[in-house]
């Protein structure tokens, strides 16, 4: 079943699991290195005053991603 929800669609305060990363190339690697590996838990923490970027709690660190980048990270909500 293809994943339909991306990290950019999740409301503040929710916690999700990474399902699949669609980002290609070097940036994919950078996401993986940050701990965004399939199966990892991510909590959505806050948005910047202007709504973009958004901050996530990933393996104990708070990391901000621009929404268009987060939209390429597919998640499971369970």
């Amino acid at each position: 079943m293809p994943h339909t929800l991306s990290l950019a669609d999740i409301p503040i305060g929710a916690s999700v699991r990474i399902a699949e990363i669609l980002t290609p190339g070097n940036n994919r690697r950078r996401l993986l290195d940050l701990g965004l590996v399939p199966g990892a838990r991510v909590e959505i923490i806050r948005r910047s005053p202007s709504g973009n970027p958004t901050a996530y709690l990933i393996k104990g660190a708070v990391i901000a991603l621009r929404n268009e980048n987060a939209a390429q990270i597919m998640v499971d909500t369970n």
């Binding site: 290195d33 701990g35 104990g60 660190a61």
Partner: peptide
């Protein structure tokens, strides 16, 4: 390493 989030440091 940061003791408060060791796992990502172990990477």
């Amino acid at each position: 390493c940061d003791a408060t989030c060791l796992e990502r440091n172990l990477n």
